[in-house]
Each structure stands twice: as C-alpha cells, then as structure tokens.
C-alpha cells in the first residue's frame, strides 16, 4: 500500500484540489496541490479549538459553516463577524492542520479516496507545502522522543502522582491544564478533546511531565507500587482457586461450605477451608498434603515446577 506521504506528493505534483479521505482516520484537503486543511479523529478540529476557547459559541460556528459558500468561506465569515482576527484564525487553522497531520502521517490500514473539488467549509486559510508538512511532522516526532523517549504513556490514562520527590516544580500553562484535567481515566487524546487543546501539544506536555517524574508510570516507578501488586494479585488469586478448583469442581458440597467463615475476605477462606476440608475431600486422591498433590497431576503445573527449579538453580 502507498504511504500517505507518497499519495500526497502525487497530488501535489498534479496540483490537485479536493479532499483525500483516509478511511476513518481523517481527511486532508488540498488546494492547487497544497494542503489547506486536515482533520484527524485523534485531534480536536478547528471548531473544537475555537469553541473551547470560549471566544466563539458552537452556534456561531454552525452558522458560519452553513452559510459558507464557494466565494465566501466560513473562515472569512467568522473574521467578518469580528469574533476573531485574521491572525488568530490563521494561527488556529495552522495549529489544527499540523496537529491532525501529525496523527495522519502515521495512519495505516485505511483505504485512501480522493474526491476532486471537495473543500473544507473554512476555506483555504493557510497553505502548506506537502514536503514542509511532512518535515514538520518528523520534527515533531523527534521532539517528542527527545523529551521522553518512550511511547508507553501515549495511550494510557494520565495519572499524576499524589506525592512527588522533587522539591520544586516549574510548569507551563498547558502542563498545568493537563494535571488539573487529568482524572486518572483519560488518555492524552481524550484529554486534548476535553481541554480543547491540540492533541500533539497535550502529548508533548504529558511526556514532559513524565520526564519530570510527575506521572505514574505503568510499572517500575515507585508511584506504581499501589497498582503493580494489584494487577498481578488478581490473576494470582483467580488462578489460586481455579487450579485446585478444577479437581475440586466435581464435589458441590465444598462451595456450599465456604460461607461459613464470613469474617474473612472471600478469597482467603477458600484456602483455609481447603486446608481443613482436604481430608474431607480425600476422595480426589489429594490425601497426603494440601496442594502439592493436586499440582502433580497437571502437566502445566509440572512445567511450572520445572521452570521454578531451573530458575532457583540459576540463582545459586
């Protein structure tokens, strides 16, 4: 499949005018072979940026959009209304296009479709050469990577640390917005939508915060300690009852007996119950010891034991 860059270069060479739709990822709009607009599902659109800034109501944007015609584009209508200056509109479009282009550059698995003549309702406000656009995308990528080389936080919810080790922190306004807006459930892309800020800028702020040690890392960081045991603990607990539970499944009286010690949490009594009831359920050939015999029958348990033994040997 042709890359986005090659397709756009081809269109630029033909001095094409129209829209290049990349499946669900987004759309590039070209005028005479130059990119005049781009939108991506991963980034806020111009109207989102405008309305989030409270400068313009969603209603005014809708009006301008509906009234947009070939000769009088939506952008000109907004400027004429006096809600924003020409410079602000240009800068807003510039920001939104570069932002969307950054995410569209890496888009794959789409079916590109070019519709000649189709233009965005804002009209051409700023012209990007295709080469320059992609050079800027690469520069932005490099900037992200030099800020914080790992992409692991890019799609995860932003979780600020409750306590930090630094004695003093200097934040940019956007970093502040990210920290205030972070609810430990929203990933950077959604946060950008919520804040009405370009998605790339939010991503950059998140990486800057990560490099300053203000965000919880997926693992290994001290901040992850409350989360790290919680995650392995769940599988460990579920595998606990299930492994002995497989052989113990045939006897129904055992589950009925569990409610008897109600003071202790649900997961612990099973083990204590297992200890006491094993002689009771001795029919399942697990006579001698509590849980070792149950392990011997299962080939996966055997493998586990062998790996454990190897690991222990390797340690010594």
């Amino acid at each position: 499949m042709q890359s986005v860059e090659n397709i756009l270069r081809g269109l630029a060479d033909d001095r094409a005018t129209g829209s290049l739709r990349l499946g669900k990822a987004g759309t590039f709009y070209l005028t005479d072979g130059r990119v005049t607009y781009a939108e991506s599902t991963a980034a806020p659109r111009v109207e989102d940026l405008l309305t989030a800034s409270r400068r313009i109501s969603a209603h005014a944007v809708r009006q301008a959009r509906q009234a947009a015609t070939e000769g009088r584009w939506g952008g000109e209508q907004l400027v004429d209304k006096g809600v924003l200056t020409r410079g602000e509109l240009e800068f807003c479009v510039l920001n939104a296009v570069l932002d969307a282009a950054y995410f569209l550059c890496g888009a794959t698995g789409h079916r590109p479709r070019f519709r000649p003549g189709e233009l965005h309702w804002l009209g051409p406000q700023w012209y990007f050469e295709v080469t320059g656009l992609f050079r800027e995308c690469k520069r932005r990528k490099a900037r992200l990577d030099e800020t914080w080389p790992s992409a692991e936080l890019d799609a995860l919810p932003v979780v600020p640390l409750g306590r930090i080790t630094a004695q003093r922190v200097v934040l940019t306004p956007l970093q502040w917005e990210v920290l205030v807006g972070a609810d430990s459930a929203t990933p950077p892309a959604d946060l950008a939508q919520k804040l009405g800020r370009p998605a790339y800028s939010v991503l950059l702020a998140v990486r800057q915060l990560a490099s300053s040690g203000l965000l919880r890392m997926p693992e290994s960081e001290p901040g992850a300690v409350p989360a790290a045991p919680a995650r392995p603990a769940k599988p460990a607990v579920t595998s606990g009852p299930s492994a002995p539970g497989m052989p113990a499944a045939p006897d129904p009286p055992a589950p009925l007996a569990t409610p008897q010690p109600p003071d202790t949490p649900d997961l612990l009594p099973k083990r204590t119950r297992g200890d006491t009831k094993i002689p009771d359920a001795g029919a399942t050939s697990s006579g001698s010891s509590d849980w070792l015999p149950a392990a011997t029958g299962d080939p996966t348990d055997l493998n586990l034991l062998i790996r454990l033994r190897n690991a222990l040997e390797a340690l010594t």
Binding site: L49, E88, N95, P198
Partner: peptide, 8 residues
C-alpha cells in the same frame, strides 16, 4: 498569548 495554544 493566544486562546488556542501557544504562546506565539
């Protein structure tokens, strides 16, 4: 300062 992003 701009209202969208920035500053310029």
């Amino acid at each position: 300062e701009t209202v969208f992003d920035g500053p310029l």
